[in-house]
Nucleic acid binder design. Sequence first.
DNA 1: TTGTAGGCGTTATCAA
DNA 2: TTGATAACGCCTACAA
Lengths: 369, 369
Amino acid sequence: MSSSKRSRPSKPGRAASISDVARESGVSIFTVSAVVNNKSHVGKTLRERVENAIRKLNYRPNLIARSLIKQKTQTIGMIVPDIVNPFFPMVVRGAEDAAQKQGYNLLLCNSDDSLAKEETAIELLLSKRVDGILLTKAAGEFSPALHKTIQEVNIPFVLVMRTYPTLTKDAVITDDYQGAYEAVCHLARAGRNRIGLISGPLRISNAKERWRGFRDALEEKKLPYEPELVVEGDYRIESGFRAGHALLSHRPDGIYVANHLMTIGLLQAVEEMGLKCPEDFGLVSFDDYPWLGVFRPRLTTVELPKHQLGSEAAELLIQRIGGNHGKPVLKKLLPELRIRESCGFAQFVSAEHRRAAPSEPSDASLVNK
Amino acid sequence: MSSSKRSRPSKPGRAASISDVARESGVSIFTVSAVVNNKSHVGKTLRERVENAIRKLNYRPNLIARSLIKQKTQTIGMIVPDIVNPFFPMVVRGAEDAAQKQGYNLLLCNSDDSLAKEETAIELLLSKRVDGILLTKAAGEFSPALHKTIQEVNIPFVLVMRTYPTLTKDAVITDDYQGAYEAVCHLARAGRNRIGLISGPLRISNAKERWRGFRDALEEKKLPYEPELVVEGDYRIESGFRAGHALLSHRPDGIYVANHLMTIGLLQAVEEMGLKCPEDFGLVSFDDYPWLGVFRPRLTTVELPKHQLGSEAAELLIQRIGGNHGKPVLKKLLPELRIRESCGFAQFVSAEHRRAAPSEPSDASLVNK
DNA sequence: TTGTAGGCGTTATCAA
DNA sequence: TTGATAACGCCTACAA
């Protein structure tokens, strides 16, 4: 009786379990559990015996076992296209900060915008029973099977930065239409009237929105939409480089680039072609980074609240995990135009001032550092 | 008998379990397991019945349960100071790529170089029973308790980018001494002879190494070590800014900065003080990024193999997980000096050429894009 | 206040 | 080839 199965000594090289602690302190497993989670009142004597045993054995509750019984892993899966794209680290950090605060961890996956990798990642996260998934959808469509799985499975998804039409799920995005619209209007205000666009993949929701903002801004400013001045890239450096060559050969006097990596590629092309910014063309980019204020040309750009994007997405997801079953939410965060030098706005304004009476003083006050 | 406890229908809103599949296909749990993991030969008829049931119920093995019994989670914990520091995304990506390839996932934590957060993260990862931990040690020392835990616990650690003296664990780092040495020698070759240093926290191993490389290069080049030209920062932008102000007031003609973020801060200070690089001083930075080649000043810098750093660390860790119990390994990867314009080397060389006969043709060939 | 026993979803060991 | 059944480490009614 006394040498029942429970009293086997702890296996070598294996972490102490709750039953080891129970045996060591001569109490039942229940008591140890009660002490660890301080539920139910445990008598002072027993509590101390248990605590000593815990210290002695360096006991650490096995969260795997706890997850199994609680049907909760306190883990969130997060899939981004590529953590090396400087846009995402801040989003991930925002998510991690919010998750951490509520006792969740982040399992991170990169999809490289590949549907296959995305599917693998989602399947894996589901098998690992994460409590929810933060997804920046890869370009393209889910396979029918995966789509069905996502609809039927019982864990919440929150889309980050990119919506997906046939999926009625929560999404936290930035107002990309507005951002692009402001960017292009600003180029127009800087006196540019042949404005080009280097766009992201148009089947990605935010690329489409940025394109719409571009188009409507042109219309608003009574500027022509010239198809040869619109090039579709894939948000990577190389595509910005190629697009730059293609676009600059038509000599636009303004360019709006839909993300930072493609701007880098564009500037490589600019270099090769011996052009200068903002002298030869005005440039407005998307996303702001600390280094953009210190190097030349100082980029005028549209900042997106990246940290907030991640944190709000995580918070929403955790609400869903907690059982909030309201209607899907679409949260749109506001972008912010940061005017520096690459658009050539300051030069344009002062040239105007020299030439005539000041047009709109409010315009000049737009220039910030 | 037939209505034993096993035949309870699957709970509502809960994913199908192996016993649901077994019941659905009228076989035992063992048979389902055998099909899923295709072990032991299962007869064709049964196999198909099981496969149909799996599809019908959209069964997905619960990896939590599997982890519990296998004592393996196929998960690696990774702790970095801050994923927003552009150095780390590529390291994380390298680790993820290597891990992925061998069937592991990454649980990511940020320590902000805070000992408290680091300790919390490690404790959590241990409780979650990750199979191993990739750690970029936060500045400062482990608490004695944590140190003991790490020594005694049975899961492998691999230190990334920073070693830790009292811990005999594997580490994958870059040869920072060498990198700094080359950076400073290059400044000397560019004719600089009052060279300053903006250093990382000297209690971090790599900051110390970079400082040593700096000091030895000065000695090698017979240049003076001027204490007022050495400022200790914390690898963040703000500290680079403050250090820049402090340092530039002494008018050095060359500066080596020990990481990219502090270089950004330095350039802010440079701007405020109305100085120009490389005209007023030569600059060599650490770490290379795609944007450094396209903006001005084009930074001369020492590239560190970040992706490789992460992937080799992960591979080593996985070897340890697999039971390789050899002696601790210290793997040092080679940095690479990338000469661009901020050091003022090209100008110096051509000025020399103009003034006299070419000194060393090999020097000029060092200049790459 | 404390203990007992069943169950979470797997894998693994024996039998049959 | 298949099937019971005991772990894995924990939580939690329900009893005592």
